[in-house]
């Protein structure tokens, strides 16, 4: 059962990620990412992290991805332009990614037995989590709220129409 669930959702996850890369329209990519995140939520659940699974759906698939799609639509982002791209990214980036993957896979595969995961494993409940979060880690938790507050203020300041003047400066980039 666990195996089947893992295979299904890991497959969904990978498919979504690859689809994200292949799609040229941002909205398609965003929807693929939602698939990835939802499948990840299931995987979290399989690993016994019930609170995180819920949070993954609510925060990521819900809030963050809504924000993404909202921005995509707001900016009316169309298909990707066929730009020249970066040769460095192709020549150096791909081998580097391959090397990273190779090294990480080797390390993971050659590591000693990490144990197994099954459906009967103990589930970390929200209670367990909050017991730690609201006692030992109360200060970091509250600091996070401040961080989010700052982020809100920052995004408002950044996205606001500055001084009422539109600074559409097309000439600078169109010439390139």
């Amino acid at each position: 059962m666990h195996l089947i669930l893992f295979i299904v959702f890991a497959g969904l996850c990978l498919t979504g990620a690859i689809n994200l890369l292949l799609q040229t329209h941002p909205i398609n990519s965003a929807l693929s990412l939602i698939v990835v995140m939802t499948s990840l939520a299931v995987l979290y659940l399989l690993l016994g992290a019930e609170f995180l699974a819920a949070a993954q759906v609510i925060v990521y698939a819900g809030a963050i991805m809504v924000l993404f799609t909202f921005v995509v639509m707001l900016l009316n982002a169309g298909r990707e332009e066929r730009t020249l791209g970066s040769r460095v990214a192709r020549i150096l980036g791909f081998p580097a990614v391959t090397a990273i993957l190779a090294v990480m896979a080797t390390v993971i595969l050659r590591s000693e037995d990490l144990g197994v995961a099954g459906l009967r494993d103990r589930i970390t409940t929200t209670q367990d989590l909050s017991a730690v979060l609201f006692t030992k880690l109360l200060l970091p938790f509250e600091v996070t709220s401040v961080l989010i507050l700052i982020a809100i203020l920052g995004s408002v300041a950044l996205a606001r129409q500055g001084d009422g003047k539109t600074r559409v400066n097309i000439g600078r980039t169109a010439g390139k």
């Binding site: 990214a89 020549i91 980036g93 990273i100 090294v103």
Partner: peptide
Amino acid sequence: RSYAAWLAVGAA
């Protein structure tokens, strides 16, 4: 993207 590539090279 070239910065990202260099970053990836460094990480690798």
